[in-house]
């Protein structure tokens, strides 16, 4: 407990001690942060390209009733039923949005808003109705906290301790995501860019849409413990969006996203330690700050470059006219 809102920055406390005194937990928390951000960021690049950012937001909200129902039915917090509940919720969300759009003149944006808020409300009601039996906390689902993930369960393989169960699980999911994206890279690219072209090439765009949705649900449900459902959206969008300000090539965007994810994990952790705040919140704040910096300073498209360009614009315009004429 402290008195001031903004604690004094102590290099010792915020930067050194976590690594010198609590290395074992720190390394796993930072790794977990990186894994969550990287996995979300990877899939997020495609979400951004498909203009599904807010569908991702909707799915992340709708998971609440999905996992609650799964919990109520199986009465366990095992991963598998939760996963199934989450996937079902994700599919229902997308299908409902589509259903409203098709059967009425409601625009997609309003449909998204209606569906996710209703499903989320159902989730909250279910949780409060079974508050005594449900070991789920709506607020925990909402914020999540990497600091709370259980580090005691260690996975031991061939006599070597590899790491805590949740971190390994996230890593596996991240690797699967990477593998799937590499396998279906060209199909995803084509369906994201031009669904009509994809259909004419014999690639069913609807199937990839649903596949991506399914996988998005899996990623979100495996991340929600760490960052909470709402901040998942930050991890989905920020890495890709920041990278897109720097480069146009998709492979580079994916690499850059991974790099940014590492930064979020590391800097977010230290920020949260310094401020004594939620790590997920810290990661998002770091993501926001990095985005703002890139937005202003990006070498080709940054605000600064544009501003400088503007003052020379007349000359540049003449030359560009000449090149076009020539």
């Amino acid at each position: 407990m402290r008195d001031q809102f903004l604690p004094a920055f102590s290099f010792q406390n915020a930067i050194i001690e976590p690594w010198s005194l609590y290395f074992d937990s720190t390394i796993w928390i930072v790794t977990m942060g990186f894994l969550v951000a990287a996995t979300c960021g990877l899939i997020g690049c495609f979400i951004i390209l498909r203009r599904m950012a807010l569908v991702g937001d909707a799915i992340s909200h709708s998971l609440l009733p999905g996992i609650t129902l799964a919990f109520l039915l199986t009465n366990s917090r095992d991963t598998l039923p939760m996963m199934i509940g989450a996937i079902a919720a994700g599919v229902v969300t997308v299908a409902l949005i589509e259903a409203i759009r098709q059967s009425s003149r409601i625009k997609p944006d309003a449909a998204i808003g209606i569906v996710f808020s209703s499903l989320f409300a159902i989730g909250v009601v279910l949780i409060s109705a079974y508050a005594d039996t449900v070991d789920l906390d709506a607020e925990c689902v909402l914020y999540g906290e990497i600091g709370w993930i259980p580090l005691e369960d260690r996975i031991v393989l061939g006599g070597h301790e590899i790491g805590p169960l949740p971190v390994i699980r996230m890593a596996v999911i991240g690797l699967i995501a990477l593998g799937l994206l590499l396998t279906f890279y060209k199909e995803l690219l084509v369906t994201s860019f031009d669904a009509g072209l994809a259909a004419s090439l014999g690639i069913n765009p609807g199937r990839y849409q649903y596949g991506l949705t399914l996988f998005l649900s899996v990623v979100i449900v495996s991340s929600f413990e760490s960052v909470g459902v709402i901040l998942v959206i930050a991890m989905l969008i920020f890495p890709g969006a920041t990278s897109m300000l720097l480069t146009d090539r998709l492979p580079r965007i994916l690499w850059l996203s991974a790099g940014f994810s590492g930064l979020y994990g590391l800097l977010g952790f230290h920020l949260a330690t310094w401020l004594d705040a939620s790590i997920a919140g810290g990661m998002t704040v770091v993501a926001g700050i990095i985005f703002t910096l890139v937005w202003i300073l990006a070498p080709k498209r940054g605000l600064l470059v544009k501003f400088v360009f503007k003052s020379h614009s007349k000359g540049a315009r003449t030359s560009s006219i000449e090149t076009q004429a020539g």
């Binding site: 544009k306 360009f309 614009s313 540049a316 315009r317 560009s320 006219i321």
Partner: peptide, 12 residues
């Protein structure tokens, strides 16, 4: 009259 969208002039 000159009108430009970002860098590219549209009317010159």
């Amino acid at each position: 009259l000159t009108v430009a969208y970002s860098k590219r002039p549209v009317l010159y």
